[in-house]
Design a binder for these strands. Sequence first.
RNA 1: GACCCUAUCAUCUAACGGUUAGGAUACGGCCCUCUCAAGGCCGGUACACGGGUUCAAAUCCCGUUAGGGUCGCCA
Length: 546
Amino acid sequence: MTPEIINLIFPNPLPTPSEIEAKYPPRQLPEGAKVTRVAPSPTGFMHIGGIYAGLLSERIAHQSGGKFYLRIEDTDQKRKVDGAVELISNSLGRYGIHADEGVDKNGHDFGSYGPYTQSQRKDIYQAYVKDFLEKGLAYPCFCAAEDLDIMRKIQEKTSVRPGYYGKYAKCRNLTDEQILENLKAGKPFVIRFKSNGDNNKRMMIKDLIKGDLALPENDIDIVIMKSDGLPTYHFAHLIDDHLMGTTHVTRGDEWVSSVPLHIQLFASRGWKAPKYAHFAPLQKSDNGNKRKLSKRHDPEANIMYFWEKGYPENALIEYLLNLINASFEDWRRNNPDKNAFDFPVNFNKISNAAGALFDFVKLNSISKDVVAAMSAEQVFEAVLKWAKEYNPAFATRLEDNRDYVTKILNIERNIGKKSRKDLTKWEDVESDIAYFFDDLFQPNPALLSPISATDVRAIADEFMAAYHDTDDKDTWFAHIKSIAERHGFATDMKVHKENPSAFKGNVSDVAKVLRVLTTGRDKTPDLYQIMQILGVDRIKRRLSAW
RNA sequence: GACCCUAUCAUCUAACGGUUAGGAUACGGCCCUCUCAAGGCCGGUACACGGGUUCAAAUCCCGUUAGGGUCGCCA
């Protein structure tokens, strides 16, 4: 390629590769330290898979004493959305996935291997593209989209492998004169990599998750620089992961078939390629088939879904960790008090099978455990934070009744293994505790049947006549038992079970009357504690209102 | 169409030539019990199919079937 052509392609001055490399010295890291990254595109949508990828990469890096950074891959200007970087940064931060280097929520760089936004690295990529051109490793291609469509149709029709390679790579053999002519005519062009690969040969690839793979060499002359002057993913990967010193690339397994190309690219510059770890993306069951969790069809693909529902951040992290390494749950059982981030993540233990189905049942179960391990105060703060964003009226109620609600949340909490585990997510709290508030309390006398109205009346009256909120639980229950006895209900469950026809019911029916009358529900947490919190006046009112 | 990957309970998975195929979630039962939840105990359910190799196969090989992925100026 003549200097004249290259100057026509890159008229503006560019740094040389060695100038650039001088600014990216090798990282001084201890032996075995891994450098990883998460590299989302700012599309305005944070996929749960992005959290999965971020978590995995972050753990791998930090557990090895290495570095983890965030890079914004915005080379597709069409898909770029305002505010997307902030969303990415906030999303990762929310789950405790902190980058050592990268871009903050305002789009500002931190760290010394930047810039970390690809659109700001245009000169760097172009410097290398120019170098590729000079070395004869790349060439300009003037094929328009329509030309490529025709090419593909012909390939389809003649049943040959589609793609820009071999004799189909028309621009590969353009003469300098032809290139000059096109350039001078102002014809749009891209730069393509001149592949020397042979599709009939296999190359052995070691993937940290998938194991050894034999993939065909790449013979396609892929685009490395688009007509807008920005690089494609493949080229940006080569340049960035080299300069930024990435040692381990963790990414979705849709990239597996590009690995031969990537290795080829690294080899073309004599650079050491990073190690690759390809994981299967989260799946969704669809009519008996599995498919990727999709932005369009699955609300839970969007990380915001979990914010709206109020899933504790820890719950999602634990669930994801469990998918990353199934041994997590054993570890958790043996280390109930440790931070989830202390769990040692291991590439070898990532399943190399097809992607896992996202399982809400399991998530909910984990979430219940996570919530049960929190203090009432912690739950209160978390619910309040959630409500401020998603249920402002409830937030106001919470703030106006901080102590009262904290007491409610404390019912049967932190009593070891028997702690209540009925709270899954913050969204559920409002309806769970509604009956503690007079304006939300809904009487439900239908639940009292088949107990007779006279019995209900008598139970309510007699209970109230001798209810003292200073009584301890045993005294309180003895009182209920005595009411049961007086009205022909068994006080002993076993006695009732042996001879049910001798009684109207048993003491649980008496408790049920009180429960339904005071809460409007037939299923509640411990009634003694509920009454303690409700207070004498409220109980009296509800028992007599019937 | 070509190429690559994958296949164990309903779900996530363990097993790396010899196990009554293990665990967790879910489900069912019992116990506990003022209801519910929790907890304790118990239970059922799986090696996709067909051939090999081997004394021995979920595990290795081949094929079939099924699923997933790639083949873009998207990442």
